Computed example of a mutant assay.
Amino acid sequence: MDLFATIFVDGLIYAAWLFIVSVGLTLVFGVLNILNIAHGSLYAIGAYTSASMVGAYFGVGGDAFPWGSYVALIAAAILVALVMGPLLERGLLRFFYGRDEVLNVLVTYAVFLILEDAMKLIWGVNPYYVYEPYTLLGDVELGSLFYVGYDFAVIAIAIVVGLAVWMSLNRTRTGKVVLAVIHDPEMSRTMGVNVPRIYLGAFVAGAFLAALGGAVTAPMISVQPGLGVNVIIVAFAVVIIGGLGSIPGAAIGALMVGISRAASVHLLPEAELFIIYFVMAIVLMFRPEGLFAKTQARKI
């Protein structure tokens, strides 16, 4: 019984931060129709920036109020979104809207490579450790199992993020405008909607979610070069399983990947990486467009 509980909780923890990253990726695709490979680099920049800001916070006397390090984590994600979002969307991607999907993938892949080298120039190649926020919430006992409280805080953040994104799209006026742009940007433009502003806002929101995923996981891992590569590969698996552009699909996909990975780690460690793509292959065999793919209008 403890083994199944361990698999479930470990899978939930892994799925939580993965969902935060994946929902940003699927949001950008849903609005801009661009599969943004550079999303992984935004995650890594968020992790590096949060590690630097938390380190600076404790370096100037933050030990007197360690809880302020959580503010530094969120502030790092906001900073990355406000700087990198407009820079990439207005400075580059807007010139490729409506172009071939393969070209867009190549452009974002080029950005990904540039940002990976830029991070090495800025932060070097040595790993960063920012453990202080991870220890503040103590331990949580679940029967005979013990977990770090911070892990459950990440689950709570993922739930809040999912509800916030869903509510913003489905229960607000701005969200209705975004959905209109998703379904028909040309008609939305003729109705007076500022489509470029919607694109910019969606990309900044996606960049914030990527950076937030990096910020909340920075205390849990070693922040080092190559971080974005691993994340974007798994995030792609999540959004493909759930369906590109689907918020509920990102949640279900993250849960499937998280629990299957946890089961593999505990039962068959050799298949840890294989199991993620095995689950993706099984889903695509029966649902080639993903579990919650957007309905495509049939052209006559």
Results as ranks from 00 to 15, higher is better:
Thr135Asn: 12
Ile37Pro: 00
Ala237Val: 13
Phe65Arg: 10
Ala16Asp: 09
Phe208Gln: 00
Asp2Tyr: 12
Ile78Met: 07
Met256Asn: 00
Leu267Ile: 14
Leu227Ser: 04
Ile282Val: 13
Gly242Met: 04
Val102Arg: 07
Ala38Met: 06
Ile252Leu: 13
Ala51Arg: 01
Ser246Arg: 11
Ser52Tyr: 14
Leu136Ala: 15
Gly98Glu: 00
Leu273Ser: 14
Asp63Ile: 08
Ala293Cys: 09
Lys176Ile: 08
Glu101Trp: 11
Leu12Cys: 08
Ile232Asn: 05
Val234Asn: 13
Met1Tyr: 15
Ala81Cys: 14
Ile240Gln: 12
Tyr147Val: 13
Asp151Met: 15
Val60Asp: 07
Phe292Trp: 08
Thr295Leu: 09
Val148Tyr: 10
Ser168Phe: 11
Arg99Lys: 04
Asp100Ile: 08
Leu284Gly: 07
Met1Thr: 13
Gly228Glu: 04
Leu103Lys: 14
Glu272Ala: 03
Ile159Asp: 10
Val80Leu: 00
Leu3Phe: 08
Ser144Cys: 01
Phe274Asp: 04
Ser50Pro: 10
Phe286Thr: 11
Phe4Glu: 10
Ala51Gln: 01
Ser50Gly: 07
Asp2Ala: 10
Ile122Val: 14
Ser260Thr: 01
Gly85Trp: 11
Tyr277Ile: 08
Asn36Val: 02
Gly149Met: 05
His266Val: 11
Asp151Ser: 15
Val204Gly: 01
Pro225Ala: 06
Lys120Cys: 15
Met280His: 06
Phe112Pro: 01
Ile155Glu: 15
Arg171Asp: 03
Ile276Phe: 06
Ala64Ser: 09
Arg94Gly: 15
Val257Cys: 05
Val193Ile: 13
Ala72Gly: 06
Gly61Lys: 07
Leu93Phe: 10
Glu101Phe: 12
Leu42Met: 07
Ile34Val: 02
Gly228Gln: 00
Ile259Leu: 04
Val161Lys: 07
Val31Asp: 03
Ile300Leu: 10
Leu18Glu: 10
Leu136Gly: 10
Ala72Arg: 03
Leu93Cys: 14
